[in-house]
Design a protein around this nucleic acid. Structure first.
Length: 468
RNA sequence: GUGGGCGUAGCUCAGCGGUAGAGUCCCUGACUGUGGAUCAGGUUGUCGUGGGUUCAAAUCCCAUCGCCCACCCCA
């Protein structure tokens, strides 16, 4: 027996039944980002390794040990571990500042070589936005609000938005010094990890998860106390803006972002119920990054969300979502079967979503497949119909039957008219993402029929699902 | 990278030294004039993989791969 292959660790397939959820997320994201004046950018997945070393920071774990790096000839290239760096590179390379494209968004995969957990994969997917060249706090407010709106519209309840200011080149070094001094004084009471962080990345001590360290941090100065006047004022206006729009945010002086490039505004949205992987969206301001990457003195601002995590937090229903067919052609006898090939293709040419049983089952088998396909109508043709120039239309929801003309245009019109009646109700784009009445990790009882759908689809098969 | 839990049918799981099981799904038939229902029958399988112990291993041991959880870090 030949070797059977498995997907790589941390690289998952998205199967039918899940892909519909992804597409609903993507549809929502595209629509929402457009609403805020953002335009899509799709950078490549591979970049020069050096791009990430310079942007994310050489000493970060992401660059230090989590990148998929390969040699290509004598250059080193890496799968992107995050997407902001690529967007900035493209912005500089193509002079997007002169094209008026300074609000950009992306949706796509990124790669990190970490030990996988639920909501943390080696290939994961992010959607994110970047605003380039705007340094006023109003831009921060818009970006943060957009993040909150996305999470809201996904129907995620009980999320928490936390904001902080990390200072800038003027004030952060002063704080860093003070912090290091304070931590050194207390090093003997910090955990082992934190002791090593004092020199390597002292800010990260602030969000150590150990209670003992957190208690100790009460005695340590916060960054907010050290903000220079400009940073102070900026942060104040960000908070005021959020307040004006009634977006609830808590100031968390311990919120630190892991990437080196953040300055001033940093924020994060966390949800309950995802365990340790509860951060679903995070970002901040990165003035200076564009310059570090060889561009002009252009400020930057943005966030990224983890699509897997958001979908987990949204606890989507696993309701049936088979392709919505208008018609399933059922044939009786060889003459009808011969005729069906053209009939089916003719209907499709008229935009009627049509299937038939290419496998050649008997009448019962074909009807069974028609029912399972989710088609609105079965279109039956046999010798009787052919002789009369008609088809028998069976409404697969109600079971009612009637005669209809065999002519393609007339039949297509008939089937399309029937579709118009319920298409609006069942079109996923017209429907908000639904919350399930259960936890994502919970039982697998049959989900309740979504209340917005007044039309149960009979025997439509439930998709098997991996439970994520 | 460190520590722990778990891998049996497509799916959810039982079996835990003595012939591989249930539910569900799938397939065939009753059914060349009707799907969802019912009935009859069928495949459900390298028991994750490779070694070892044993007369005998799904079961015990070791290794390995994968999933999950925590740490680390982050979306």
């Amino acid at each position: 027996m030949p070797e059977r292959f498995q997907s790589l660790r941390g690289f998952h397939d998205q199967l039918p039944g899940r892909t519909e959820h992804w597409r609903r997320f993507e549809t929502l994201a595209h629509a929402l980002f457009s609403l805020y004046g953002f335009r899509e950018i799709r950078p490549p997945h591979l970049e020069p390794t050096e791009l990430f070393v310079r942007s994310v920071g050489e000493l970060t774990d992401i660059v230090g040990k989590e990148m998929f790096t390969l040699k290509a000839g004598d250059e080193s290239i890496s799968l992107r571990p995050e997407i902001t760096a690529s967007v900035c590179r493209a912005y500089i390379q193509h002079g997007l500042d002169r094209r008026g494209a300074n609000r950009l968004y992306y949706i796509g995969p990124a790669f990190r070589r970490e030990r996988p957990q639920k909501g943390r994969l080696r290939q994961f997917h992010q959607a994110g936005v970047e605003v380039l060249g705007e340094s006023d706090p109003e831009a921060d407010v818009e970006v943060i609000v957009l993040g909150a709106r996305l999470v809201e519209r996904l129907g995620i309840e009980g999320f928490e938005l936390r904001v902080n200011s990390l200072g800038d080149a003027a004030c952060r070094p002063r704080y860093r010094e003070a912090l290091v001094a304070a931590l050194r004084d207390r090093a003997d009471r910090l955990c082992e990890d934190c002791r090593s962080r004092i020199e390597r990345n002292p800010l990260r001590v602030l969000d150590c998860k150990r209670d003992s360290c957190q208690q100790l941090l009460e005695e340590v100065p916060t960054g907010l106390e050290f903000l220079c006047q400009d940073c102070e004022r900026h942060f104040e206006r960000v908070r005021e803006g959020l307040e004006q729009l009634e977006v609830k945010a808590t100031v968390d002086a311990r919120l630190v972002r892991g990437l080196d490039y953040y300055v001033r505004t940093a924020f994060e949205i966390a949800t309950a119920g995802l365990g340790a992987q509860n951060a679903v969206l995070g970002g901040g301001r990165y003035d200076g990054l564009i310059r570090d990457l060889g561009g002009g003195d252009v400020s930057g601002l943005g966030w990224a969300c983890g699509i897997e995590r958001l979908l987990l937090a949204a606890a989507l229903t696993e309701h049936d979502n088979p392709p919505k067919l208008d018609a399933f052609v059922v044939t009786l006898g060889p003459r009808a079967r011969e005729r069906a090939l053209g009939l089916v293709e003719g209907l499709r040419a008229r935009n009627v979503a049509t299937m038939w049983d290419t496998a050649g089952h008997g009448l019962g088998g074909q009807m069974k497949r028609a029912g399972r396909s989710g088609a609105a109508y079965a279109v039956l043709i046999g010798d009787d119909e052919l002789a009369r120039g008609t088809v028998t239309l069976k409404d697969l929801t109600t079971g009612e039957q009637r005669e209809a003309p065999l002519g393609l245009d007339a039949l297509a019109a008939e089937l399309t008219r029937a579709r118009g009646a319920d298409a609006r109700a069942s079109d996923p784009r017209e429907r908000p993402l639904e919350r399930a009445g259960r936890r994502a990790t919970g039982n697998r009882q049959t989900p309740a029929t979504p209340p917005t759908s007044g039309k149960p689809r009979g025997s439509a098969r439930r998709e098997n699902d991996d439970g994520q």
